[in-house]
């Protein structure tokens, strides 16, 4: 459970203000909002990478500021947007680094840690990538490896910053299926996305941000209406359905009726 109270986030100027939301266990929460609305900044604050400008964050009822880096890492894992990595670690080495919070200060990962890392790769069906160099993998494969690293971390909360941004159509839904399953397993999952369809199909709860404020929040099915999405993205959006699944499209100017 992640709770924010009257939270303001930003570097020196607030980007997002007065945010009070609760991310509950067993739920997939989607964060929607146009570019620059502060999703990444919010996530960095939730991860303790950036101090809040005002308000507070708590994890399972404990103030985030009272937790050490190690204690926090055992509770909450982070899948950042694709990062540039310099050194050619193998995929399994990258996933093993997810075990850092369980490895003693002067130790190296144990056999148990290796097992967790291999299990995480297997869970995402990428065990065959284990000994390949991470820097040589495609963007989608790297994203899956980083997700595996988060799984290996032994946390119960997961924050994903646009996890599908660099994935192909098939990998997109594979990653989202995995993430949705984690929520079903009881994890607290928060992800940001630019695709409202993903939010409508998979999220239990959505948080909608615009212009540095909370625009709306609630059950995905209730609040994600054409009206709200039109306001959110300043364009014309239609919602339809395929085999009973909601699908959302932004209409090109020339095709609007």
């Amino acid at each position: 459970m992640i709770e924010t109270k009257a939270l303001s986030v930003g570097y020196s100027q607030p980007i997002l203000e007065d945010l009070s939301v609760t991310f509950a266990p067993g739920q997939l929460h989607a964060l929607l909002g146009p570019n620059g609305c502060g999703k990444t900044t919010l996530f960095k604050t939730l991860m303790g990478l950036l101090p809040p400008l005002a308000g507070s964050v708590s994890l399972h009822g404990k103030p985030l500021s009272s937790l050490s880096d190690l204690e926090r890492a055992r509770q909450i894992a982070y899948v950042p947007q694709i990062q540039q990595h310099v050194f050619p670690y193998t995929a399994i080495e990258m996933v093993l680094m997810g075990r850092t919070a369980h490895v003693g200060m002067f130790s190296t990962p144990s056999a148990e840690d290796h097992d967790s890392a291999e299990a995480a790769l297997a869970q995402l069906q990428i065990a065959h990538l284990a000994h390949q160099e991470f820097t040589k993998l495609s963007g989608g494969q790297r994203q899956l490896v980083i997700l595996a690293r988060a799984l290996a971390q032994g946390a119960s909360m997961l924050v994903l910053d646009e996890p599908t941004a660099s994935l192909d159509f098939g990998n997109e839904i594979r990653v989202l299926d995995e993430v949705a399953r984690l929520a079903t397993d009881g994890w607290t999952v928060v992800l940001s996305t630019h695709n409202p369809t993903h939010a409508m199909q998979l999220a239990n709860q959505v948080v909608v941000l615009k212009d540095g404020r909370l625009l709306d929040q609630g059950a995905a099915k209730q609040i994600l209406t054409e009206d709200l999405l039109n306001t959110l993205y300043d364009t014309s959006i239609g919602i339809g359905s395929v085999d009973g699944l909601p699908v959302c499209v932004a209409k090109p100017k020339a095709k609007r009726s």
């Binding site: 303790g48 990478l49 894992a77 990062q83 050194f87 850092t100 919070a101």
Partner: peptide, 12 residues
């Protein structure tokens, strides 16, 4: 060697 933000989110 992964960088400050990743190291911190991994618990160091």
């Amino acid at each position: 060697s992964l960088g400050d933000e990743e190291a911190k989110s991994l618990g160091i």
